[in-house]
């Protein structure tokens, strides 16, 4: 699939949108992930510049979560490679923060909100060392940013879906990272929380971080995200939202599963 030409300050002609900084935050090249004989990701290229807020969209089974996990080294890669800031991921772990899907943990675990957020500091602590006052402070600050300070000592099983999402976000904030990979951060949150999260992500972007989110709601892509990658096992298109998020590309990504609303903006039909 030919990459969509980019326009903008420094058109590099390879589907990359840059904001003036030559360093690429994330570079994915020829990435292929196969589970037994089935390809889940096939020959995917994706480049994300620094200071970009990007969405990854695609139908179910498109490999969106797998892409995130492949970048993080959580799944085995069959072919291709991943660079963070020009270096292999293993060398750059400290710079990458991860916000997994809410359903990936058992929320009945006996621990508090503050405790979960502090886990984000474990990497910096290294083996055996215990979290102390400094870590607690960092966690408290992060909780404030997501407006969850009142819940610091709440048992996590008592949280609503949106609150759980915010806890995971706070956990990523304490990692002091400049690249954020998030898997459906808006899944199941109410409108107010959603606005708050978007603001947070945009703040992060404005301060120079790179944020990539798997996103499920096509209607909000244009409003929230600067760039978007359309994925369906292969990369269909990747680049600035206004250029890449076209009907043609969407049709190519979602196949026949499209329904046109009166407003003329495309949305995915019958999410299973």
């Amino acid at each position: 699939m030919a990459p969509t030409p980019a326009t903008g300050p420094s058109a590099s002609g390879s589907g990359v949108q840059t904001t003036g900084d030559g360093d690429l935050a994330i570079e994915v090249m020829d990435l292929t992930v196969a589970y037994r004989d089935k390809p889940v990701l096939w020959d995917v290229d994706m480049s994300v510049a620094r200071g970009v807020l990007m969405a990854i969209v695609g139908p179910n089974g498109a490999g969106k979560t797998t892409l995130i996990k492949a970048i993080l080294g959580l799944v085995d890669i069959s072919a291709g490679r991943v660079l963070i800031g020009g270096r292999p991921y293993e060398q750059q772990r400290r710079r990458v923060a991860y916000v997994p899907q809410r359903g990936s943990v058992d929320w009945d675990f006996p621990t508090t909100v503050l405790d979960v957020v502090m886990m984000g500091r474990y990497g910096a602590l290294g083996w055996i060392k215990r979290p102390g006052a400094r870590e607690k402070h960092a966690a408290s600050e992060a909780l404030e940013k997501v407006a969850m300070s009142d819940y610091a000592h709440r048992q996590i099983s008592q949280l609503s879906g949106g609150q759980q999402q915010r806890v995971f976000l706070a956990r990523s904030l304490v990692q002091d990272a400049d690249v954020y990979l998030m898997d459906e951060p808006f899944q199941g949150v109410d409108a107010t929380t959603e606005r708050a999260i978007v603001t947070l992500l945009q703040d992060l972007r404005d301060s120079g971080a790179t944020v990539v989110c798997v996103h499920h709601d096509l209607q909000t892509v244009t409003e929230y995200f600067d760039s978007v990658t359309l994925l369906n096992v292969r990369r269909i298109a990747s680049g600035a939202t206004r250029e890449v998020f076209t009907d043609e590309n969407l049709r190519a990504t979602y196949g026949g599963r499209m329904a046109w609303l009166k407003t003329g903006s495309p949305t995915e039909a019958a999410r299973d």
């Binding site: 080294g73 991860y98 997994p100 058992d106 886990m119 990692q175």
Partner: peptide, 15 residues
Amino acid sequence: KLLSFDPEFGTVLGF
């Protein structure tokens, strides 16, 4: 604790 609650996150942190 990390192993029991969120092992994937632990991997990401580098453990």
